[in-house]
């Protein structure tokens, strides 16, 4: 019976808003059309432009732009930078969320704000600070030259800048989720004799898997697409320190539009996959959440 009632309430709220709380049809459609027009101008048309521009000179030119050696090495470097920064920020995200969500300590809200810092910093500045430390005139500049180790205008700099700009994503996703879940289940595990690592592996991680995945795909999208920060530290050396977004810029500035948009279309495709995964995760986690609710109703 309660299932029918809640279904009914749902039906009332979502589909048949009562006459008193809905707008006349003409207002409704005016609003829908204005919103869609706005989104078209700023989202849909530019997105469509990426793919049409990429294919303007035909499919063969498109493929050629992607298999050209400089493009291939840019793709490789992008994958490497993402592959290194993802696990680093993943471990950090879990550690930070564990400390913040499961314990009380002084300065917690300051810590949360500090974790957010990279969101507030312009990507250009994110690149700049690593130049200041590892660049020729930087803190470690001389030492690095003496030891023949390059950070700036090399892969380590690109990785560092990428780690910095993607730093908060996973932690920001996990902290509120783990705070909401409380620590009862972990305490139950403890009472039953589980070790700390067992609790993390068997209790906490399964509970946060959707949030974790969500954070990972956001981090990945940003890591592969970062432009400003990487641009400052990379030095734009073709075939060596060019990531995909930088490669797009170089091609574009050389008026090689078809090739620029071809590489860009790959990144745009990646963005669409990211959004698809994100919707899937939201749907999945929503489903588990409502299933849990139903279970606790009965």
């Amino acid at each position: 019976m309660s299932a029918i009632v809640s279904q009914l309430a749902h039906y009332n709220a979502k589909v048949a808003r009562s006459r008193a709380t809905s707008e006349p049809t003409w207002v409704r459609w005016t609003l829908i059309i204005s919103a869609l027009l706005f989104l078209s101008l700023f989202l849909f048309i530019p997105l469509a432009a990426v793919f049409t521009e990429a294919l303007r000179k035909g499919f063969e030119t498109y493929i050629a732009a992607l298999v050209e050696p400089d493009a291939v090495s840019a793709i490789q470097l992008t994958l490497i930078a993402a592959a290194i920064s993802l696990p680093l920020n993943l471990v950090f995200g879990i550690a930070a969320a564990w400390a913040i969500a499961k314990f009380e300590f002084k300065g917690k809200s300051i810590l949360i704000t500090l974790i957010d810092l990279p969101f507030a910093v312009s990507p250009v500045i994110a690149g700049l600070i690593f130049v200041l430390i590892f660049g020729l005139q930087g803190w470690f500049g001389e030492w690095l030259i003496d030891n023949d180790f390059k950070v700036i205008f090399a892969i380590p700099g690109i990785v560092l800048a990428t780690v910095f700009v993607t730093f908060p994503f996973i932690a920001r996703e996990l902290i509120p989720l783990m705070q909401a879940q409380g620590k009862e289940e972990e305490e139950a595990g403890l009472v039953l004799g589980a070790s700390g690592w067992q609790i993390l592996w068997h209790i906490t991680l399964p509970n946060i898997k959707w949030g974790l995945l969500y954070g990972v795909i956001l981090t990945n999208a940003r890591a592969m697409g970062e432009f400003g920060a990487v641009s400052v530290v990379s030095g734009h050396i073709r075939g060596l320190t060019n990531t995909m977004p930088l490669h797009v810029e170089i091609l574009y500035n050389e008026y090689n539009y078809a090739a620029a948009f071809a590489v860009a279309s790959l990144l745009a495709f990646l963005a669409l996959v990211t959004l698809g995964l994100k919707s899937y995760i939201e749907w999945q986690s929503g489903r588990t959440a409502s299933a849990n609710e139903k279970a606790s109703d009965q």
């Binding site: 989104l39 989202l43 530019p46 997105l47 432009a49 990426v50 521009e53 956001l218 999208a221 592969m224 697409g225 970062e226 432009f227 400003g228 995909m244 977004p245 930088l246 797009v248 810029e249 574009y252 620029a260 948009f261 860009a264 990144l267 745009a268 990646l270 963005a271 669409l272 990211t274 959004l275 994100k278």
Partner: peptide, 15 residues
């Protein structure tokens, strides 16, 4: 709607 979060800024720029 989330496209600007996922699309690299350079791609958005040229598009």
């Amino acid at each position: 709607v989330d496209l600007p979060f996922a699309l690299p800024t350079a791609v958005a720029g040229i598009a």
